[in-house]
Design a protein around this nucleic acid. Structure first.
Lengths: 193, 193
DNA sequence: GGAGTAAGTAATCGATCGATTACTTACAAG
DNA sequence: CTTGTAAGTAATCGATCGATTACTTACTCC
């Protein structure tokens, strides 16, 4: 398999492993096993675990930006924000993406990852304003809602949907027009680490 | 020093260490050094690193709930939500509290920590509705905003306030009535791990 | 049919971590 | 005194992790 293809495959699987285990809890061997290659190969391809995480973050931001841009064309204003919100929820299909973004934000104090995480966040903020035409207040509440969705995904609260009236009530207001997207993309038990 | 007092001291310092290093990246020795005791003492007092984290999470939720309850008395509606929001921002003084909550949410897939993290989150949701009298929609946007504040704190974006017009603009809309509280409680360089 | 190169692994090393054990110190009660 | 107990530490052990080294395999281009 050509290296470029293998690289994308490893990055995809590494996203899921980092998402479940966090940065410190992820071993290069866990990533290697998930991708079906040997541990030294992962290290040699990315140099260090830190550089692997940076590559995972860069890919996550790229996918996120592309997903948002694809949802921009069409009626603007509230409708556009709803399309972008649904697209964000649809990213649950990219296993671990929301969680990896949270992990990166939590590394804000790290001298290497921190600056990258901050500029990733700010680029999404700029995309919302410059490319999607949101006001600053719209961008704030849009991104705040994204952070709530991150939390609900990370907490795996969707697994208990239907089993707890509080959870059902929260989902009704948290996903006014994207609950089907959320439900249809939940990971199966076999997909979890 | 009596054990109860020592315990609270260790929990406070452990909160800051877990916040900076994550669950997997935190060592019991780092916590011990931060608290000024030996590593075996930390392990013996809490049993395992996992139980230590659960104790940190329980304390964080307790402080958060007490802080919210103290902000409830007085005019209700939007004013009450603003008081509670400012109180939440003021919790920056409790070093690492917002980040530790995020860390716990990210452990949603953990068989031990996950259930505790979910019930902590749901208890705060219930507090907002039952005790603070919010509608479900108010509670949603209130908590979503809290998740945004968590992110800004974890990213250490406040450190760059004044150095980047994008950051300044975001803070203006993110902290319409709590920016002073935010600014006044930022950690000094010496406080960071 | 070699020579060169890309893809990948087995074996291993030094460092680190969580946990255990055995020990010490300070102090209050009888 | 001395006995008991709470508060703590030094030393250490087995396991694990990130990284390095040396090796193998497969394909391609004269």
């Amino acid at each position: 398999m050509p290296a470029a293809e293998r690289r994308e495959l490893i990055l995809r699987d590494a996203t899921a492993v980092f998402a479940s285990n966090g940065y410190g809890g992820t071993t290069t061997d866990l990533v290697a096993q998930a991708a079906g290659v040997s541990q030294p190969y992962v290290v040699r391809m990315f140099g260090t675990k830190e550089k692997l995480f940076l590559a995972v973050l860069e890919r996550a931001e790229r996918i996120l930006a592309e997903t948002f841009r694809a949802a921009i064309p069409g009626p603007d204003g509230k409708e556009r924000r709803e399309r972008m919100g649904m697209a964000y929820v649809g990213l649950i299909a990219e296993r671990g993406l929301h969680q990896v973004l949270m992990q990166a934000f939590l590394l804000g104090g790290d001298p290497v990852v921190g600056p990258e995480a901050r500029s990733s966040f700010l680029r999404i903020w700029r995309l919302a304003i410059d490319e999607a035409g949101m006001t600053e207040e719209d961008a704030r509440s849009f991104i705040a809602n994204g952070m709530l969705i991150n939390t609900l995904v990370a907490l795996r609260l969707g697994d208990a949907y239907g089993a707890d009236p509080d959870i059902d009530a929260m989902f009704t207001v948290a996903f006014p027009c994207s609950f089907d997207v959320f439900k249809d993309n939940l990971p199966t038990a076999a997909e979890r680490y």
